[in-house]
Design a protein around this nucleic acid. Structure first.
Length: 126
RNA sequence: AAUGCAAAUCGGCUCACCGCUCUUUCGGGAGAGGAAAGUCCAGACAGCACAGAGCACCGUACCGCAUGUAAAUGUGGGUGUUAAGGAAGAAAUUCUUUAGCAACAGCAAGUGUCACAGAAAAUAACCGCUCCAAUUUAUUGGAGUAAGGGUGAAAAUGUGAGGUAAGAGCUCACGCGUUUCGGUGGCGACAUUGGAAUGGGACAAACCUUGCGGGCUGCAAGACCAAAUAGGUCAGGAUUUAAGGGCUGCUCGCUCUUUCCUGAUGGGUAGGUUGCGUAGAUAAAUGGUGAGCUAAAACAGGAUCUGGCUUACGGGUUUGCAAAAACG
RNA sequence: GGUCGGGUGGCCGAGCGGUUAGGCAGUGGUCUGCAAAACCAUCUACAGCGGUUCAAAUCCGCUCCCGACCU
């Protein structure tokens, strides 16, 4: 049951960690999302995630919230596999998803994109 | 019953599965808007400043009543003005009906501006009109004048009579307007009436003047805790293997400062907590999928709080008004 | 979140309420054997909607967009 949760512990909350991630983390693009990731020394969960949508592309708060909710939903439903692998290996990661598209995405397309992103993360972290 | 216009009002619901934020007595409970928006006003709250007064700067400006701390809103009235219609008059203009609009104190305190056109845009004179002089006898010069012409957005109160060389508020009559002093009505804005003076073009969302109001800055305000590093302060110690001064003529010794070590501590940075709320986070919560009502619902998402204004908005409901046709 | 500033041709930029300068670029000519340069001509603008005024790019409201500062 707990596999599909996305609680406070799984969000990246520390300002220090965020600054470090954007300054020295690695990144790759899987349109329409730019992914940044960085290994952490220790943490209470295998992955901490941050989702952001630039104000420059989406002027209205409603649109930004919509995009963030869609990304969060796809991550929540697809993350279980990679979390188990990382937990088994004892690795911890900080992640950031930056939306770089210009339109509000469709749920089905975004779901496919998310699967590809997680596959790529799995191979990169191995 | 339908259509159009105006005003007010509502601001999708139900079920299933998987999830989010806060809280909890661990059963559960609470969880975005009418605009949460723009930040255009006003207030609460907070910090700084402050004897009193004035200047500067900013805002504001018809009257009564009601609500409100205020801003503002509602309602009634006054004045002005726009459009359409009607009436009076010779004209300027005035009166009236309906509908709408008004940042509606003062250009008669001072300053400034008024393009082009036009003689002239505010101490008017091109053509014209009149008189005088000269002579080339149809022109020139001087003086007077503002009726007529044309320009312009705007041209110095309208008509008639007297008057005159020609004319002119130059004088008079009837009007129109302004200022001021009274009377009457009204709580008041104001209306009306009598006297006196007067005829001064527009613009204050031009500078400005007058009345009234405003200290400045804003939760990224402010308060608390506080790592690392480098300074500050205090205490203790170290060796003369470091330097200088004092007590003395010199040495030892004592003592002070610097140096080094250890400990404590103040300010304060990163960062955190609070400010912060019976929605309440701190990278920041209401979503996804499927089904139905009925068809996708429109504008749109809290960040210190509250009241107002403005702007965006699919559709529904209620009330009022409107002309034509049909039916009873 | 809060406080300010600004929108003028394709680009850069002046503009006391009175016909929107100027430069670069583009287009068409002149010149040349062909080009460049030069010269001539030409195209394209006051962010939008209201108000004040005889008249608004300018003054005053509201809306949209862009930028700066405070952490």
């Amino acid at each position: 049951m707990s596999r599909y949760t996305f609680g406070k512990k799984e969000k990246l909350c520390s300002k220090l960690a965020i600054d470090a991630l954007f300054k020295s983390g690695k990144s790759f693009k899987e349109y329409p999302i730019r992914v940044m990731y960085m290994p952490l020394e220790e943490s209470d969960t295998a992955a901490k995630l941050l989702i952001t949508v630039p104000k420059k592309r989406f002027k209205k708060a409603v649109s930004r919230n919509k995009v963030k909710r869609l990304i969060r939903e796809t991550y929540r439903l697809n993350k279980s596999e990679i979390i188990e692998i990382w937990q088994a290996q004892g690795k911890y990661f900080a992640l950031a998803f930056v939306y770089i598209g210009n339109d509000i995405p469709v749920y089905g397309d975004l779901n496919e994109t998310m699967k590809r992103i997680l596959e790529k993360l799995k191979s990169l972290s191995a």
